[in-house]
């Protein structure tokens, strides 16, 4: 192995052919190099006028930020191997000391396929397993989608705010819808199950209206919720779901609202729970309360008796 000191000015930072890291700026690495200097050589590929980075994007960026004039590097000659061998080297180097995140794995697969011409079969058989992924074409497809997704969605995904399934769904919608959804997602926080439900509602509402999936998010009620500064991102997500549900299932939502109003009109304490049959399939009501002593029991039973004499009770059985 030949290692030598290279002037940092000779390195082509613009060429990212062999880049795997999603982030090339690392504060801890910067701090480490500032304190103790470069410990391990980076790997550079000699080209006509400059050097291309094979391994060490983050270290080199740190060294550049610290205005270090020279770097310690192992130099590869371009004639010694094909480009794919150099990329493989970069991949093994990364895998040897850290776990790649999903976006980085997606970047690797995308580059292997599109920049180095590796076949799907080889990607599935060799590279998926190498990166601890299941060797299946669906896994490959999902990662291609991930790499090509909207930058905002990639950001949400990296922060754990969008699931892989959501990323796949979002890859199927038009660019107009993607913009609308991306701007909405920036304002809310959704659990994975709520993501699934909301995207399904958006799809259904789009099919019903013959419109784009993003259209429903332009509803004035939705906009009002999204722009309400008093709500937390999670609250906005819940409320947005409730509005979309009402738009998709207007009669069910109306029945639920009526039931709540009529139940409240009975004036029962909160410890008495009255619930309808699921989706009002029958007029049956389930009444439940708990009492820790006889006195409490008598009090609640008396309140129920009082409620039973109110005409509002009849209306509670007439939800349709």
């Amino acid at each position: 192995m030949i290692c030598q000191e290279i002037s940092i000015k000779e390195i082509d930072f613009e060429n990212e052919t062999f880049r795997i890291s999603e982030e090339v700026i690392s504060a801890p690495l910067n701090e480490s190099i500032r304190r103790i200097g470069q410990l391990n050589p980076v790997v550079l590929l000699k080209s006509d006028q400059s050097y291309r980075i094979v391994c060490g994007f983050r270290r080199l960026n740190a060294l550049r930020q610290l205005n270090t004039p020279t770097v310690f590097a192992r130099i590869l000659e371009s004639g010694s191997s094909g480009s794919l061998d150099f990329f493989d080297l970069a991949l093994w180097d990364n895998l040897s000391h850290r776990q790649l995140d999903p976006l980085e794995k997606a970047r690797v697969l995308y580059k292997l396929k599109n920049d180095f011409g590796v076949s799907d079969r080889m990607l599935i058989r060799i590279y998926l397993a190498r990166m601890d992924l299941k060797p299946h074409k669906q896994v490959l497809r999902a990662h291609m989608v991930l790499h090509e997704s909207h930058p905002d969605f990639r950001g949400h995904f990296k922060e754990g705010r969008l699931t892989q399934a959501s990323m796949e769904y979002l890859s199927t919608v038009s660019s107009t819808s993607r913009e609308i959804i991306a701007s909405s997602l920036a304002k809310i926080h959704l659990s994975s199950s709520l993501q699934r439900k909301i995207f399904r509602l958006l799809d259904d509402l789009a099919a019903i209206a013959g419109a784009e999936p993003g259209k429903a998010l332009e509803d004035p009620q939705v906009r009002e919720v999204l722009n309400n500064p008093r709500l937390s991102p999670a609250q906005r997500g819940e409320k947005m779901y409730a509005i979309l549900y009402r738009l998709r299932f207007p009669r069910v939502a109306q029945a639920e609202k009526l039931f709540m109003e009529r139940k409240q009109s009975l004036g029962l304490p909160g410890s008495v729970r009255i619930t309808p049959d699921p989706y009002f399939e029958t007029p049956d009501l389930y009444v439940e309360f708990n009492a820790h002593d006889a006195e409490r029991f008598r009090k609640l039973a008396a309140e129920l008796f009082e409620a039973s004499r109110k005409p509002e009770l009849d209306r509670l059985f007439q939800i349709d």
Binding site: A207, P250, E281
Partner: peptide, 24 residues
């Protein structure tokens, strides 16, 4: 097909069906 976009709810036999007031 517009069929999947009805106001369906889960029924007692595990099937989806129109909300009862709609069926009535």
């Amino acid at each position: 097909s517009k069929i999947p976009y009805g106001e369906f709810v889960p029924g007692h036999h595990g099937k989806l069906r129109y909300f009862r007031p709609i069926r009535e």
